[in-house]
C-alpha cells in the first residue's frame, strides 16, 4: 500500500492490522485538524476499544521520559501493546519545535510500542482538540495503555492529563516540585505520585511533603469525589535510570484502573472525557464562526457604532452573537 495515496478507510484498515506507517499518517491528519481530521474521528470513534489512558506529567528534568521508557518495557514484558503521545511546546517565535522525547526514552523503546512526538503548535486550544483525536486513533489501532506525556505547565496540558483514566504526577527531590505541582493544580488531579530520583538526598522529604498534602486534602474532603468514593493516591519511590521501583508503578497504575472499574468511576471518567472533548470542539467551532462573523458588515457596523457613538460594547457584542445564534 502506498501510504501517501491511500484513502482514509484504507489507512484506518492498515492501522488496525499493525501498519505503523498508517498510524503515523492518521496522527498527522488529526494533528493538522483539517476536514480530514473530522473524517478520521468519524471513522475511528466506532472502533474505540477499551484502552487504558494514562496521563503522565512532571517538570522538565524530572525524568518522566525515562520513566515512560521504562514503563513501556515493563508493559511489553506483561504482554501489553503500549503507545505514547509525547507533547512538547512549539517555539512561540517560529512555530517550529525540537522534539526530544524519543531520545530520552532511547535504548528502552521496545519493539511493538509506538511513540509519537507532538508539538503544541502555538495556541493551546489546538492541543485540546488534537489529543483526544490522536488517542482515538491509537485506541482504534489496538494500543493500550496509551500514555499522554506532558510538561506540567499550562492549564490545557493539566486538563489533558486530568482527562486520562489515570493521572500520574512525577516529582523529584530538590526542585520544589511539590509546591509547583500544588500551584498548577496537579495535586488535585493526581491518581498516583511518583517520586523519581529516589536515590537522591531529599527524596524522603518530597514524599513527606506529598503525604502531608494528601492528609490535608483528606481532612478537607477534597480527595472524596462527588459520589463519595474515597481514593488516596499512592506515592511510589522510583529511580527510573536504573529501573528501581518501576514494577511498582506499573502495578500502581493497574491498581488504579481496578479501583475505577470496581467503583464504577471508569464510565464516569470516560463520559467526562467525551463531554470535555465535545465542549472543546463546540467551543472551537463557535470561535471559528465568531471569527467569520466579525468580518461581516453587520459586525463592522456594530463595532463602528461602539467606537464612535454611545452604543455600548455590551450591546455591540450581543448584536454580533445574535447573528451567529439567530436568537
Amino acid at each position: 500500500m502506498n501510504i501517501r495515496t491511500a484513502s482514509l478507510t484504507e489507512l484506518v484498515e492498515a492501522a488496525r492490522s499493525g501498519d505503523n506507517r498508517a498510524v503515523g499518517r492518521l496522527l498527522t491528519l488529526v494533528e493538522r485538524g483539517s476536514a480530514a481530521a473530522e473524517e478520521v474521528a468519524a471513522l475511528t470513534h466506532p472502533l474505540r476499544g477499551n484502552a487504558h489512558v494514562v496521563g503522565i506529567t512532571g517538570a522538565p528534568g524530572s525524568g518522566k521520559s525515562t520513566l515512560v521508557g521504562r514503563l513501556l518495557a515493563g508493559w511489553c514484558q506483561r504482554g501489553l501493546r503500549p503507545a505514547v503521545l509525547a507533547i512538547d511546546p512549539s517555539s512561540p517565535i517560529s512555530g517550529g519545535a525540537i522534539l526530544g522525547d524519543r531520545i530520552r526514552m532511547d535504548d528502552v523503546i521496545p519493539e511493538g510500542t509506538f511513540v509519537r512526538s507532538m508539538a503544541t503548535r502555538g495556541h493551546q486550544g489546538g492541543l485540546a482538540l488534537a489529543v483526544p483525536g490522536a488517542v482515538r486513533v491509537l485506541d482504534a489501532a489496538g494500543f493500550s495503555p496509551i500514555v499522554i506525556e506532558t510538561v506540567g505547565v499550562g492549564q490545557v496540558e493539566v486538563d489533558v492529563v486530568a482527562a486520562a483514566d489515570t493521572a500520574v504526577v512525577v516529582a523529584t527531590p530538590g526542585m520544589g516540585d511539590a509546591v509547583q505541582a500544588n500551584k498548577a493544580g496537579l495535586l488535585e488531579v493526581a491518581d498516583l505520585f511518583v517520586v523519581n530520583k529516589a536515590d537522591r538526598p531529599g527524596a524522603a522529604d518530597v514524599r513527606r511533603d506529598l503525604e502531608l498534602m494528601l492528609d490535608l486534602a483528606h481532612v478537607t474532603g477534597a480527595d472524596t469525589d462527588d459520589s463519595g468514593v474515597y481514593f488516596r493516591p499512592q506515592i511510589l519511590m522510583v529511580t527510573a535510570t536504573t529501573g528501581t521501583g518501576v514494577a511498582e508503578v506499573i502495578d500502581g497504575i493497574a491498581d488504579h484502573l481496578k479501583h475505577l472499574t470496581a467503583s464504577g468511576r471508569l464510565a464516569d471518567r470516560r463520559a467526562h472525557r467525551v463531554k470535555a472533548e465535545v465542549r472543546s470542539r463546540a467551543h472551537a467551532a463557535l470561535e471559528q464562526q465568531l471569527r467569520h462573523s466579525m468580518q461581516s458588515d453587520a459586525a463592522t457596523a456594530a463595532l463602528e457604532k461602539a467606537i464612535n457613538s454611545n452604543f455600548s460594547p455590551v450591546d455591540a457584542a450581543r448584536k454580533i452573537v445574535q447573528k451567529i445564534t439567530g436568537d
Binding site: G61, G63, S65, T66, I98, G100, I103, R104, D106, D107, T241, T242, G243
Partner: peptide
C-alpha cells in the same frame, strides 16, 4: 551500573 544515554537538551 546500567548504561547512560543523554537526556538530550538540544
Amino acid at each position: 551500573f546500567g548504561r547512560y544515554t543523554e537526556q538530550a537538551i538540544v
